[in-house]
Nucleic acid binder design. Structure first.
Length: 492
RNA sequence: AGCGGUAUCGUCUAGUGGUUAGGACGGGAGAUUCUCAUUCUCCAAACAGGGGUUCAAUUCCCCUUACCGCCGCCA
């Protein structure tokens, strides 16, 4: 087999969508597994809808995910340029060839005429197929139309191409993931390959680019299946080698609709912004359709690549379940090297004055708070009570707890005794153990409630990080002030 | 409407012509812990329906149903 060359060809009309990211990932995995090349091509033929901002976002997102490309707009390559808008001089040449050989013809139909055809089709409850009205226009007729100021679009002659290369009207191809797929080409209308403004359409540009870039396998979403028949015909008409195709099931939102903004994050950069790790994103998205042969779901991108077989991909759609992604994200957070984690978290702590803490205290704080995080951004709330000096916001549940006699009893003793304690983690650990042990013995207070009183007063909450370390970080003075404050307010 | 695709726990999936149909997330119960979380143990949960073929069908074939996609001078 000749060299494996696959590509991802996003259109920069938005930030890189998670679905596109999955398609990119599968292409990347396929390339890696087969020692092939992974190519990035930007499809920006529609100048209206595309922007540089989105191109940058696509680059950044792909890189963040670790999907590095071998050839592309920025790194170049043998078959560039890799941005369609820079390839506009390439497309007309092949159009001319198609025209000369009768595989394409000029169409002078106006939007109104076309609209009328479509309306009639829907009135008769029939599928719309272009009437081929312009197929056999004479030179005189064309000249006349041109004189009227009409600019022709170029249409591909489907039936002609089909007859030239196939015995029947049925076109078949062997899909890498779905197996044999077929379609009656009589149902495909002669489609436009060059717009009247001289720019190529998607179906045409894709073929030229894939052929010229020597793409061997086209792996993409199943929404492209029907385009595939058109594209195969163009490949054949132009005498290009037809690549192999593989169509992936779609990713759906939990309500089975298209994954859109209202379901939460959809762009890779949104996920990252919200505190998802790209490692988790890659791992999770790979599991949508693909499954590891050893049953071990947590895997690096390299491990997945080694185990990847395109024909074993599930060909059905899959639902994007945020729960599992979150679980996976929390797992990856725990796996992160501490230094890396501490740095990443700073981005979500900008509302606090980190200078209140020494570096050691900051590190300790992260050590005891990172475990329950599902998103990096959860850290913002998780460490709130470490800041604010001698004051802390008390939430409802903590307030209720503070008002119990037990809590007041505990706090009074705590404030009294702790005054004399040496405020180190080691010592606090020891002292508190004795402290709650005594309460248990003398008054039957469960350790849980003894600690809750202190926790509620000092952190304003009932759940949070390790109490000993928390006290040590907040410091003796502030901890005791907070504890005293809790006693006073409860007594008023 | 037409054409194409898909169908195993709620979700992602494994799997087989004969299995107690397996795992993961989520859910439930319990243990551990100063709380939350973690960790551990256990539990509930699926072969869409109907016909065939066969000694035997979740597995192969057909039909139905449901869902998804496509029918642009968008990509």
């Amino acid at each position: 087999m000749s060299e494996v060359r696959v590509r991802i060809a996003p259109s920069p009309s938005g930030n890189l969508h998670i679905g596109t990211a999955r398609t990119a990932l599968f292409n990347y995995l396929f390339a890696k597994k087969n020692n092939g090349k992974f190519i990035l091509r930007i499809e920006d033929t529609d100048a209206e809808r595309t922007s540089q901002e989105y191109v940058d976002n696509i680059f950044d997102s792909l890189k963040a995910l670790g999907l590095n490309w071998d050839e592309g707009p920025d790194v170049g390559g043998e078959y560039g340029p890799y941005t369609q808008s820079q390839r506009f001089d390439i497309y007309p040449k092949y159009i001319q060839k198609l025209l000369d050989e009768g595989f394409a013809y000029e169409c002078f139909c106006t939007p109104e005429e076309l609209e009328a055809e479509k309306e009639e089709a829907s009135r008769n409850k029939k599928a719309y197929v272009y009437s081929k009205k312009c197929e056999n226009l004479t030179e005189e007729e064309k000249a006349k139309l041109r004189a009227e100021g009409r600019k022709p679009a170029i249409r591909f002659n489907v039936a002609k191409a089909q007859k030239a290369f196939h015995d029947s009207s049925i076109l078949e191809f062997d899909d890498l993931v779905k197996g044999k797929l077929h379609m009656d080409t009589n149902l495909i209308g002669d489609f436009v390959i060059m717009k009247s403004n001289g720019t190529p359409t998607y179906n045409y540009a894709v073929v030229i680019d894939d052929a010229l870039m020597k793409i061997s396998h086209v792996i993409r979403g199943e929404d492209h299946i029907s385009n595939t028949y058109k594209q195969i015909l163009i490949f054949e008409a132009l005498g290009f080698e037809v690549p192999r195709f593989g169509h992936l099931g779609m990713i759906l939102a939990p309500d089975r609709s298209k994954l859109s903004k209202r379901h939460g994050a959809t762009a890779v950069s949104d996920f990252v912004e919200q505190g998802y790790l790209t490692e988790a994103l890659v791992n999770f998205v790979a599991l949508l359709g693909w499954s590891p042969s050893d049953g071990q779901e947590i895997k690096t991108i390299d491990e997945i690549a080694a185990d990847f077989r395109i024909n074993e991909i599930s060909s059905s759609n899959s639902i994007f379940e945020y729960d599992k992604l979150k679980w996976m994200n929390s797992h990856y957070i725990k796996m992160l090297p501490k230094e890396v984690l501490r740095e990443k978290l700073k981005k979500y702590l900008t509302k606090y004055d980190l200078s209140e803490l020494t570096e050691e205290q900051y590190n300790r704080m992260i050590d005891i708070t990172y475990e329950p995080l599902t998103l990096l951004s959860d850290i913002t709330d998780a460490v709130a009570y470490f800041f604010g000096g001698d004051k802390v916001e008390i939430d409802e549940k903590a307030q209720a707890e503070l008002e119990t006699d037990l809590s007041q009893d505990v706090l009074k003793s705590f404030v009294e005794q702790a005054e004399g304690w040496e405020w180190t983690e080691e010592n606090l650990h020891e002292k508190l153990e004795v402290f709650r042990g005594k309460f248990k013995e003398e008054k039957g207070y469960k350790p849980k409630f003894t600690m809750w009183a202190i926790r509620a007063a000092v952190t304003g909450r009932l759940c949070g990080a390790d109490m000993v370390v928390t006290l040590a970080i907040i410091g003796k003075e502030n901890s005791l002030k907070r504890a005293k404050a809790a006693i006073k307010t409860a007594m008023v």
